[in-house]
Design a protein around this nucleic acid. Structure first.
Lengths: 238, 238
DNA sequence: ACACTAGCATTTGTCAGACAACTTCTCCCC
DNA sequence: GGGGAGAAGTTGTCTGACAAATGCTAGTGT
């Protein structure tokens, strides 16, 4: 079939990883290269692609390990709920990581999304969600400072911007969410403890109040495999 | 900061690719390796990750090229429409590729989804959607043979299973769609002319008739960047 | 007996150089 | 002008080597 070593190698490696129990160590690179009939350089290129998929993890001096599949958080998309609410309902032990609150000036993207002037003062709340001691989601909320004051937030913040706004009695109505697949930027990769370029499921959402004002613009990054989002769609035009 | 060559290299490469005009050729590997201060082997490992992200394309004997950003097909997820209908409304010149229709026996996954007995006879319709001469989506529909006969399909098939069923007057109601990020399997990679392991946005949907029967189980694979799916979500419980 | 440390074997990370396979262009010949 | 051979350039793969990090082991001191 494929007389290119790299393609055959990928198939062989995929099979090997699939049949190896999670947490187990693969043979050393020289051994594997000899077994699979390729050079170590070619083997390493192929391994890099599997590492980017999060299927294996390489540690210098220790070896290459198969990573186990994590628990799945399942959620419908019709209603907007905070990740915290979601996690509680699924019964999974998911906890928020440390919360980072900072003042920023609106960049072009945020200003456009929040419908404010460039360089307006904004609040950015970012945090990770952890399940099984591993970060599985990275959430970044951006709000105008007039909507949410940093000091106000630090006092009574429970880990969810949405829950906080609702608890304060804000008249929120809908959220417009955009769904894409993306690759981890350097910043996101660091927070999720993965490699730059790893594949992620990404939501970009605007939270809209009863008056039509955009009160929150958020980016959410989810590790694939940890989440299962579903939606019920009507056939034809609404 | 990062005293590991690979991480610094990824940042440098990302910057280089970002500022290079689409379609342009990068310097040769030996030149680039010298410029960036790494060996060719390390450079190639890094390039492999960017190739998996679809940002560059390497061709033996020709060079490494920056791939341009494609047109975007934007669609809401509240209503279920065929990709064909969608493409027409966006005004983009999107056409279906060759259609493959085959009889199969239900494997475990299909049988479970369609609520039929294992080894039941099924029809599988698979095809790619092309935009700009490139495949951008790969769609696989699986239906019980009692719902759709192959010969019936071949006569009047327009490129969309959904449109065909609707045109026939089937009482379809809703679709339950699951959304994940995934990596291309060997089969999908071949059809989309990408590399195994490349990142994809994946929908898995069940199409349900008025009587509650599952009439179609489909997997759709979308190249990131070509599509923008959005959804309007109500706040709180429905 | 226990804690600590130094050293050694193992493994991944990176480098250098070489050759094969493929693409593209040039130049010569007809 | 057209066609084909050839050369130059580029990616694909291989070999061998050394550096850096890890984990184990044996030895040492208390």
């Amino acid at each position: 079939m494929s007389h290119f070593p790299f393609q055959r190698l990928q198939a062989d490696l995929a099979a090997l990883i699939a049949k190896s129990p999670p947490g187990s160590r693969l043979p050393s690179e020289p051994d594997l290269a000899a077994d699979l009939g390729v050079s170590r350089a070619t083997l390493r290129e192929a391994m890099r692609t599997f590492e980017a998929q999060g299927l294996i993890r390489r540690r210098q001096g220790a070896g290459t390990f198969v990573v186990g599949k994590p628990p799945v958080i399942e959620a419908g998309l019709e209603a907007l709920e905070s990740m915290l609410t979601l996690a509680q309902r699924t019964g999974l032990k998911v906890g928020p990581g440390p919360v980072n609150v900072e003042r920023i000036s609106a960049d072009e993207e945020s200003a456009s999304a929040l419908e404010v002037f460039p360089a307006s003062r904004l609040i950015r709340v970012s945090r990770t969600m952890r399940a099984d001691l591993r970060p599985v989601a990275y959430l970044v909320d951006t709000l105008p400072e007039e909507v949410l004051r940093p000091e106000e937030l630090r006092e009574k913040f429970s880990g969810s911007v949405l829950d906080y706004l609702l608890g304060r009695g804000d008249p929120l109505t809908i959220s417009r969410t955009e769904i894409t697949a993306s690759n981890a930027s350097a910043e996101v990769a660091k927070m999720l403890e993965i490699q730059r370029g790893d594949v992620l499921l990404q939501f970009s959402a605007k939270l809209i109040s009863a008056s039509g004002k955009v009160v929150d613009y958020s980016h959410s990054y989810f590790l694939p495999g940890h989440f299962k989002f579903h939606i019920v769609r009507k056939v034809g035009k609404a």
